[in-house]
């Protein structure tokens, strides 16, 4: 039995692979993992509490995600999340392609060629193009995230680059009479504009879109409009943790 764990900034994603190759996927808020399911050891590392997670003893644990270095799981093989996401994307596309992962705080792009990450790019020092920004904006606009994701037509022009200041800009636009669908589309389009330069670093147009952000239909629309041939795997938010298990397989083969 093998467990993959992707410790993201917002959620922890689990993938439990049983010996007969059945896969169970679930998630929990990252803070719950820290507070309820870790035992701190004297050497500063942490041990996963399988019992409190309702799991039997697991043979192999592979960890990825932003928190993998902070959590320091003593039982786990640690994998970089960019490589894990790329490995996850290779499940659905071969040859040369771009992998775009939109997570809670990070947006990552990797150029994959023949089963290998050739180059990558990650947003830096600013989370304005990330999932958390979209969540905040949905809250400010008072719409569920899924609804925000559905608007792409006639986007309102949002000029503030900061995710926090954008809130007051949106409130100002509401007062000017800009409609809710236009504002939702504006939020999505401004996010797309932040991601586009990361993609355009390479001429490749085949794209695997993963992470929670891959559920954003408006983003998909803008990507397709920019001539990207987009593939979204099933359960895209679990792509990293599944890729993590794929990397375990590779390691065992080698």
């Amino acid at each position: 039995m093998r467990l993959g764990i992707d410790i993201g900034s917002r959620k922890v994603k689990f993938a439990l692979q049983s010996d007969n190759n059945r896969m169970k996927l679930w998630d929990m808020p990252t803070t719950d993992l820290y507070h309820q399911h870790l035992h701190r050891k004297p050497d500063g590392t942490n041990e996963l509490d399988f019992h409190s997670l309702g799991l039997p003893q697991v043979d192999i644990v592979a960890a990825t995600g932003y928190g993998r270095n902070n959590v320091k799981l003593s039982q786990a093989l640690v994998v970089s999340e960019i490589l894990a996401h790329a490995a996850g994307a290779m499940r659905v596309l071969q040859g040369e392609f771009l992998m775009l992962d939109m997570g809670g705080q990070d947006t990552k792009v990797a150029l994959v060629r023949d089963g290998q990450v050739e180059d990558f790019s990650v947003n830096d020092k600013c989370a304005a193009g990330s999932g958390r920004y979209l969540e905040n904006m949905a809250q400010v606009l008072g719409v569920p995230l899924e609804e925000l994701f559905s608007y792409y037509a006639d986007p309102a022009d949002l000029t503030t680059t900061c995710a926090v200041y954008a809130e007051s800009e949106i409130i100002g636009k509401l007062a000017e009479g800009v409609t809710m669908p236009q504002l939702c589309a504006g939020v999505n389009y401004s996010t797309f504009l932040k991601i586009r330069p990361m993609l355009e670093r390479w001429p490749q147009k085949e794209l695997v879109f993963v992470g929670g952000g891959a559920k954003n239909k408006a983003m998909l629309h803008y990507l397709q409009q920019a001539h990207y041939a987009v593939v979204i795997p099933e359960a895209p938010e679990y792509n990293g943790v599944l890729g993590c298990l794929e990397m375990l397989d590779k390691e065992e083969e080698e």
Binding site: S80, E81, L83, F120
Partner: peptide, 11 residues
């Protein structure tokens, strides 16, 4: 920081 380490690890 963790994000910079992630980049270095991946590279």
């Amino acid at each position: 920081d963790g994000r910079t380490k992630t980049r270095l690890d991946t590279f």
